[in-house]
Design a protein around this nucleic acid. Structure first.
Lengths: 125, 125
DNA sequence: TCTTGACTTAGAGTCAACTCAAAGGAATAT
DNA sequence: ATATTCCTTTGAGTTGACTCTAAGTCAAGA
């Protein structure tokens, strides 16, 4: 699979795919004899994982560290586990923050709906 | 309340508080005759709202627009409602993305826990 | 063979959201 | 009155995550 095809399949620009590889967020991608990227199953799994983690807001740095540990072999299993647990912790915090803000937005929205219907504002900010 | 006190109360640096005011993410703060910021109840409400929205990841730009509309008066009520509804939509998407990633992290973590216990890796990435 | 379009790298540029530095004014303790 | 500490503004610098540019290489069709 060419970089263009991967780009379309995963909705990630070719620039970003090269960037991910360059900084080590995914391992080096398989190449043709001419030096052109030819993504294999294995490579696509990494791309997909990277996309998933990034879309939730996990830092690029965390994925780089994970890939680095992964490539070091089985001795880093506990370190990788710890990294994943930490990132899960971060996501849980982030989600609870979003929930708090959603509750607040819902409240404000319900107030605004009344205000827009009646043309009257019954409170402040 | 001085900027320092607000900074400590809300865990926002004084630099960031001044930045928020400068870009219009909160309305101009009350000043003493000497030109020094003296946060009133009203000002603190805005600070708190800004902090809440930012901690959920809402863009500064959205808050700026909200404040702008707010200061324009009651004629902008529908526009403000629409802005809030859009931002809620964004947060809901963001949360569902986090949930997806959490599910995946949980799966990986459970696999890693087995692997670390047995000292054996039973699968790939 | 020639052209066209996609591929390559290295390195510079952009954007959002801060964060810091410089230079000076104000309020309080001694 | 002087020192200290906190306040002010303006404008520049930093960080994370891309995104773009330049200069060149490769591969498929006319």
């Amino acid at each position: 699979m060419t970089i263009k095809e991967v780009s379309e399949a995963y909705q990630i620009t070719t620039d970003t795919l090269r960037y991910y590889e360059r900084v080590g967020m995914i391992p080096a991608v398989t190449r043709t004899s001419g030096g052109i990227r030819d993504y294999q199953e294995e490579d696509l799994k990494w791309v997909e994982l990277a996309k998933c983690m990034r879309s939730a807001g996990l830092p690029v740095e965390a994925m780089i560290e994970y890939v680095r540990l992964f490539q070091e072999g089985d001795s880093t299993l506990p370190a990788r586990l710890q990294l994943l647990v930490e990132q899960r912790e971060n996501l849980l915090k982030q989600r609870s923050q979003i929930d708090q803000t959603l509750a607040r937005l819902n409240y404000k929205i319900s107030r605004y709906e009344v205000a827009v219907r009646t043309g009257e504002l019954t409170w402040d900010t």
